[in-house]
Each structure stands twice: as C-alpha cells, then as structure tokens.
C-alpha cells in the first residue's frame, strides 16, 4: 500500500465482506501521531483467524489460502514507529486500532482519506459509516442519518461521490500534518 489511507480502505473491505452493516471510525492526530480506530458490528472474526489475525495464512479467502490485509497494516504501523491491535470479542464485532508517527522516516504518506471514504461508500453501499474526528469525536459523516435524510441516496453515483468527497476534505483536513 502506498498510503495509510489505503490500509483503512482495506480494513473497511474486511468489515463489508465479513457481514457488518455498520462501522464507527475514529480518526485523530496528536502532534505527529495519527491514530485510527475501526469498530464494526459484524459477527467477529472466525475462530481460525481469531488466534492470530495478522498471520497471512489465517484467512477466510477462498481464492487462495493467504490473506495479507491485516499483516500489511501491522507492518506499516510498526515501520512508522506505531503499532496495531485487533480485538474480536466472543460477543461479536471486530475492533482494529493502529497508530503511525507521520514524521517517521519510514512512514507512508497519510493519503486522501476523503477519497478513500467516498470510495468505500460507493464500493459497499450496504456498509454504514460513522466517522468521528479529533479528541472530541466530532461526527463528520453518518450514513445511517444520511440515508434517512435523503431516501434513495446512491453512493455509487459519480455526482454523489464527488459531493461527499469534497465535503469531507475540509472536515478531515486537521488530520494531515501542517505544511
């Protein structure tokens, strides 16, 4: 992955494929440390994966028995002086937390979180997202509400995609390091 934001997209795919209908995403930058926490409401990790979720050979894939998503995220976070944790309680749901020092010499660029979130909405329209930013968890996107407000909204529509991406750009700008 070339950007930290792409790891987020990849984790959101896991939630969508795993049968979650909602994800709460907390994004925060404290100084040079970027932190993300992704909590879904799906059934949790299957027992075979739960033992060691970042082992590439623990996977639910059927195309071939190797899954790299979480392993790549762990590697990227550790290379950037941060770390990654996965929790999957018996009761269900998966929680992934990762932190990155954006100023670390081996850190990937943060990348376009606005584009990634708009892409996730188009890609998995059934997966609802609540996105919160900063220490005070300010909600910048809530698609449960959006779908109620605008009945029939189509996230796979190019104009909707652009509008969402544009409105998120400003809301997420505090997450990037100042120039």
């Amino acid at each position: 992955m070339k950007e930290i934001a792409l790891h987020l997209l990849d984790i959101l795919e896991n939630s969508a494929k795993g049968g979650a209908t909602g994800v709460t995403l907390d994004l925060e930058r404290r100084g040079s440390v970027f932190h993300m926490r992704i909590v879904d409401n799906g059934p949790g990790l299957p027992p075979a994966v739960r033992l060691d979720p970042t082992d590439p050979f623990s996977t639910t894939r059927r195309e071939r028995p190797v899954g790299l998503g979480l392993a790549l995220l762990r590697m990227a976070a550790e290379h950037a002086g941060g770390g990654m944790q996965v929790r999957s309680p018996e009761a269900g749901g998966v929680e992934v937390e990762a932190s990155f020092n954006l100023q670390h010499i081996d850190a990937q660029p943060l990348g376009g979180l606005d584009d990634v979130l708009a892409t996730a909405l188009a890609s998995w329209p059934a997966l609802n997202l609540i996105v919160r930013v900063g220490a005070d968890h300010q909600v910048v996107l809530n698609t449960w509400e959006l779908k109620t407000e605008i009945n029939g909204i189509d996230f796979s529509n190019p104009k909707v995609h652009k509008s969402i991406s544009t409105s998120l750009r400003e809301a997420l700008s505090e997450l990037s390091l100042p120039e």
């Binding site: 407000e149 605008i150 189509d154 529509n157 104009k159 909707v160 509008s163 969402i164 544009t166």
Partner: peptide, 14 residues
C-alpha cells in the same frame, strides 16, 4: 453534512 441540499438535488436528478 453541510451539503444535504446538494445531495438531495442530485438524488432527484438521478
């Protein structure tokens, strides 16, 4: 979302 009106307009056009 600040652009609810815009999104609503797009929905109607589509």
């Amino acid at each position: 979302m600040k652009n609810l009106d815009e999104l609503r307009k797009i929905r109607d056009e589509v």
